[in-house]
Design a protein around this nucleic acid. Sequence first.
DNA 1: GTCTATATTGTGATAGAC
DNA 2: GTCTATCACAATATAGAC
Lengths: 220, 220
Amino acid sequence: MVKPSSQRRRGAVQDLGTEARILDAAHTVFIRRGTSGARMQEIAKEAGVNSALLHYYFRSKAKLSEAVFRRAAAELLPAVIAVLVSDREIEDKIEAVIEIELTKLLQAPYLPGYILSELAHHPERTRQLVSSATGMIPEDVGRRVLGAVRKQITARVRAGTFHPIEPEQLVINLLSLCIFPFAARPMVSLLLGLDDGEFERFIVRRRRQLPAFFLRALRP
Amino acid sequence: MVKPSSQRRRGAVQDLGTEARILDAAHTVFIRRGTSGARMQEIAKEAGVNSALLHYYFRSKAKLSEAVFRRAAAELLPAVIAVLVSDREIEDKIEAVIEIELTKLLQAPYLPGYILSELAHHPERTRQLVSSATGMIPEDVGRRVLGAVRKQITARVRAGTFHPIEPEQLVINLLSLCIFPFAARPMVSLLLGLDDGEFERFIVRRRRQLPAFFLRALRP
DNA sequence: GTCTATATTGTGATAGAC
DNA sequence: GTCTATCACAATATAGAC
């Protein structure tokens, strides 16, 4: 964001650069409280600076939340989209998407909750979520993904090795199965009776089992 | 909530009872803005009353949001849980859950976004979401659902008609596939290039196709 | 029960010293 | 660049008339 200058100095409280520290703190607090529930005060405290500094670096809360969302959005889909538009075999794509996405979300388990919550209340940010993928415009991302998958499905169905399925359903099924358990984590944990460690192991097992589950559903 | 009296009078602006009208308005606004983004002012306007009345009926914003969440929570899972703990065949359960849940969510498409957003920022409300099901305590809901499903899976695997799967994974897969498309609706619509009507038709097709998809994944 | 003030606190944002 | 002090207004909540 409108960064007034680029000096970086050593020896700060916990060096990282003030701007980056503020951004990290904002990320933490926005995830914890949601964008409208977050307080600039709390972010400042989390970053170990005064709240006036947040305005110095990011001008306004809206701008700061925009910066945080931009960074978070780049984590959720890009890798997955890259796989889906590649020229790998469809089975490889499915396995890779599950492996990549679950592994990433194990590192950032609260990301889906934050992103989906943002989308629900600021749908206009959706375009950014999708396009942050590859720099393509969102409409093209969708067309390319669906086009690539459709072509592969068609070939497989013709060869008699796939049960027919709409590419739209396939893609959404894949995203659903990967992202939902994190987005609904509190519900999942309570329903299954899992503490934090058990939830993590649940996902690790899932990462191993989901590809086979999904591929069985595609057999003729 | 602490209702001062129970008189109902006819001939109100659009009769329904003031308290109910406020609750509906609050529901609308909380879904639109999220709990912390919602303003009592906006709710009052939506209900066609003065904001002092909201406090008269519900005492505080927190209490009002609690009442709204309670009502919304009762929509998402109870029906599904009832099916899963019943003594129907497992195939029937899967078909029924998909049918029931997608049909319900077609009527209330923004419910999942609201609920998941709430859970992300108020995880303590999760217990209420799960227990509103049957009045059972949340832990028992989970145990009973998993127990019932596990027994059915075991029998089928033994009979050679099912591929082995953890009941936990099966249940979460089912919920994921039903709820996620709504929870991530803006993302889904953009990715697939759907307007509102097309999204609805996408779900209608999904309701027809998903049972078969899911059951194929369970074959040995 | 419903309204019009109004009290009170919370919160984003700016000014200005260092 | 970073802080302290403060402004201005938004937002919840209450008092009291009708």
